[in-house]
Structure formats: C-alpha cells, structure tokens
Amino acid sequence: MHRSFEFFHHRDWSGVTISEFCRMLDAYLRYYNEERPKEKLGWLSPMQHRRSLGGEGKISWTPS
C-alpha cells in the first residue's frame, strides 16, 4: 500500500486543525522514512541499516 493511503485510510479527520494535521503528517513521514522496518533492508529500519554501515543513523539533509 502506498504510504499516503496508510496515513489517510480509515481516519476521521473532522475536527483536526491544519496545524494538527501537519504535525501528524510530519510525525508519520519521519516514522515511515526513519523507523519503519523495510523488507529490502533485511527488515531493519533505515536508521538501523545506516548504523550497521557505520553511519550515525540520522538524516543530515536540510531543506533549502
């Protein structure tokens, strides 16, 4: 399932402010990109995989 469906599917968004929605979406995307185990990484999270390769486990990208 595409990540957007996982986040939006079967949720009642009534009463959720734009600010709350943005906070929730940011938290979900961080989970999805950093913590969620991936089959192609041997069921490690991306952070665990980076650490296993000698990295910090953090993403050092900063938006411009």
Rank of each mutant, 00 (worst) to 15 (best):
E20N: 06
H49M: 05
G55T: 08
F21E: 11
H49T: 02
G55Y: 05
S19K: 14
R36H: 13
E35H: 08
L25T: 07
P37Q: 09
P63Y: 14
S19V: 10
L25W: 05
P37Y: 08
W13A: 09
A27E: 13
L53Q: 12
S45E: 08
I59V: 10
F21G: 03
R23K: 10
L53N: 09
Y31F: 11
F21Y: 12
R51Y: 02
M47Q: 14
S4M: 14
V16Y: 02
S64N: 15
S19A: 12
E20M: 04
H2M: 13
K38G: 03
K38F: 00
S19L: 08
Y31I: 01
M24D: 11
S52K: 05
E56R: 11
Y31L: 07
W13Q: 02
R23C: 02
R51S: 03
S64I: 13
S14H: 03
K40P: 01
L44V: 04
K58V: 02
W43Y: 15
Y32D: 10
G54R: 04
S60Y: 10
T17V: 09
S52I: 00
W43C: 09
S4C: 14
E39T: 07
D12K: 14
H9E: 14
F5G: 04
C22M: 09
M1H: 09
S45D: 03
R3I: 02
G57A: 06
L41G: 10
D26S: 05
